[in-house]
Amino acid sequence: MPVNLVVNGEERAVAAPPLTPLADVLRDTFFLTGAKHVCGEGFCGACTVLVDGKPAVSCLTPVGLLEGSEIRTVELLADPSGDLSPLQAAMERHDAVQCGMCFPGILMSLTALFETDAAPSRDTVRTALAGNICRCTGYERIVEAALSVCQPEAAQ
């Protein structure tokens, strides 16, 4: 029985075994390869997407539970014209990106944070990223960039 989803605003149906991780459906069926399947145990956060507005590790999210759910992935953040979102633009401006594998998940974790807390403190941002591993950057620029979006004056 197919599962009906709204993925990045588009109604989609997927006929995959119910325990198939959402990450695999996004990547293999919808070719949304932004979310990365990295650890498969929910600790690295590279596969983070928003399910009904809440952050979820899509590697541990069985597609069978998602009938009618609204999924948002990193591919939705930038404007369709290609312009980066303010958060993405801040990451670019701060030269935060290195290998880039963790960013799709980090951007979605931060998007989820900002939707519940428009002006988080530095510690709140850091804690909100406790489920996102970045092996390249040492995190500080990511935090700086995030703060520059929500508290432009504090980050200067």
Binding site: G42, G45, P55, A112, A130, G131
Partner: peptide
Amino acid sequence: AATPAVRAV
């Protein structure tokens, strides 16, 4: 507990 994304589900 755990991480924000896990706490959400």
